[in-house]
Computed example of a mutant assay.
Amino acid sequence: MRVVVTRPQHSGERTVQRLTEMGHEALLLPLSEPVHDAEAASRGLSETQDAIAVTSAEAIRALVALDQNLSPHLSRPLFAVGKATAKEARSVGFTHVLASEGSGIELAELIARNQTSTQQPLLYLAGLPRAAGFETRLSELNIPLRTVECYHMLDITPDDAILRKFFIDTPADAVLLYSRQTALRFFSLPFLRQHSYTLAPTRFLCLSEAIANAVPALLRIHAEIAAMPDEDSLLALLTAE
């Protein structure tokens, strides 16, 4: 199956490798790239003492530049959305990592169940843009929060020649969509808007219902939602009956 991966380069390369090992033809189409702010992350770490929360592996990658200055913080509890983000945290040396299976809302509830003290604010290493669910739910649970934006995603517009190759010359069978923002970016690309007919037979495999709702109404019949918001469940859709 010919599958388009709409992830940033770093994480997208790993997905491409997984798809290739599964026997698919994988095509990487980054629609954004991360810009890290290690200084902001460093200030956030130095000005807080309690647990850390991350909703994307990009927040962990922003910490890598701190090198040895990260060492004093590696024993702090770290709460992560999903197995992939938790794995990234462990790979840089965090020793006490807890992961939620689903969304930021579920991560907030995991934190509420595991926090022994609410005196010190939780440090949220966040990015832009981001969904509001995690911060909103923490507020509802009366958990104090210090949000530090340590990366932002910069939009990329692929060349029309690449889009023509992926969707017209040999049309893709499926497109993997990992975030609502990415889905909105994908369907707003001028080339695809001008040649929207090329997407008619394409499957849009979505990590969540919110992402599927970003698929244009005329194409939503081809949107499929992963059983769980993780990559294993998303890739399982490729072999589903």
Rank of each mutant, 00 (worst) to 15 (best):
H10R: 12
G12F: 10
G12W: 03
R14S: 11
Q17R: 11
R18M: 08
L19D: 13
T20D: 03
T20Q: 12
M22K: 10
E25D: 06
A26M: 02
L27V: 11
L31D: 00
S32Y: 04
E33W: 04
H36V: 01
H36G: 07
E39D: 11
A40D: 01
A40N: 00
A40F: 00
A41E: 03
A41I: 05
G44Y: 05
T48Q: 11
Q49R: 12
A51T: 02
A51G: 05
T55N: 14
A57H: 08
I60G: 00
R61C: 07
D67F: 09
L70Q: 03
H73G: 00
H73C: 07
A80H: 08
V81K: 11
A84T: 15
A84E: 15
T85Y: 12
A89M: 01
V92F: 03
V92M: 02
T95H: 12
T95K: 15
L98T: 04
L98N: 02
A99R: 08
S100V: 03
E101M: 10
G102M: 08
G102H: 08
I111N: 08
A112D: 14
Q115R: 14
T116H: 12
S117Q: 11
S117L: 05
T118A: 06
T118S: 08
Q119P: 02
L123T: 14
Y124L: 11
L125S: 04
L125Y: 11
A126Y: 06
A132D: 14
G133Q: 07
R137Y: 09
R137T: 13
L145D: 02
R146G: 05
R146M: 11
T147N: 04
H152T: 00
M153Q: 14
I156S: 01
I162S: 04
L163Q: 04
R164I: 03
K165N: 12
T170K: 14
P171W: 05
L176P: 02
L177I: 06
L177Y: 10
Y178E: 09
R180M: 06
T182D: 05
L184M: 12
L189D: 05
P190F: 09
P190L: 10
Q194W: 09
T198W: 07
T198M: 06
L199V: 08
L199P: 10
A200K: 09
L205E: 02
L205P: 09
L207M: 15
A210M: 13
A210R: 15
A210H: 12
N213W: 09
P216H: 06
A217V: 07
L218R: 10
L219E: 10
A223R: 14
I225V: 15
I225A: 07
A226H: 10
A227S: 15
E231Y: 03
L234I: 04
A236M: 10
L237W: 08
T239E: 12
